[in-house]
């Protein structure tokens, strides 16, 4: 299935955990520092340099190369989303983002915010940075480059970015939670195999 940003609440709500999607349209990168600065500005009532309504935010610190006067994307795999656990619920609520792309899933407060405000978590294969970069057709710009290359807010144009697995849907379901439950069920057997059961 192909989806395109800006995403509507309706499209986002139609997705279910385990669905595979490919994404088109503008995607913003944002890691720890972007989250902190944006929320800080929000608290102070300042306006962000980009409009995140209906946007997809990508937990990614890319490798960029400057060619003449424009930026070329070299590699753009995801970073561990859990680092943004404490910031994402406010980010979803405050800016109206509809998709978070990353790896490893996020904790309960984010799952709750996603179902409350209509947002999904899309898991992209960790480390598969070359394929991810091939799903980006253009670097549209950059803000906050003072945060350093990995932490800056890069504005990317996605073209068939994926495969992305719906890891958390807008109905409170999480594939990661399901796997965790499965792992707890399997663990006693694994321990018994090691003779430490």
């Amino acid at each position: 299935m192909r989806i395109k940003t800006p995403l509507s609440e309706e499209v986002v709500r139609s997705l279910k955990v385990g669905d595979v999607v490919h994404l088109d349209g503008v995607v913003y990168t944002g890691r720890d520092e972007v989250h902190m600065r944006a929320l800080d500005m929000c608290d102070k009532g300042e306006k962000l340099p980009v409009d995140l309504n209906g946007a997809a935010i990508y937990h990614c610190g890319p490798i960029m190369r400057k060619k003449d006067d424009s930026w070329v994307l070299v590699a753009a795999g995801p970073t561990t989303s859990a680092r943004m656990n404490s910031l994402e619920p406010r980010f979803i609520e405050g800016f109206g983002i509809r998709a978070v792309i990353g790896k490893g899933g996020m904790s309960q407060p984010t799952i709750d915010a996603m179902s409350k405000f209509g947002c999904v978590y899309l898991a992209i294969t960790g480390g598969a940075a070359v394929l991810a970069a091939m799903g980006v057709t253009k670097v549209l710009g950059v803000e906050w480059l003072d945060l350093g290359m990995p932490e800056a807010l890069w504005i990317l144009e996605a073209g068939n970015l994926g495969p992305l697995i719906v890891g958390i849907d807008a109905h409170g379901d999480s594939l990661f939670k399901k796997v965790e439950e499965e792992v707890s069920r399997n663990l006693p057997f694994a321990r018994r195999r090691l003779g430490i059961g």
Binding site: C60, G61, P62, I63, V74, A75, A76, G77, T79, G127, A128, A129, V130, L131, A133, M134
Partner: peptide, 12 residues
């Protein structure tokens, strides 16, 4: 692909 075009396989 990373091997073919000689770019880093992961951004990290």
């Amino acid at each position: 692909r990373a091997g073919e075009i000689a770019v880093p396989m992961c951004q990290d």
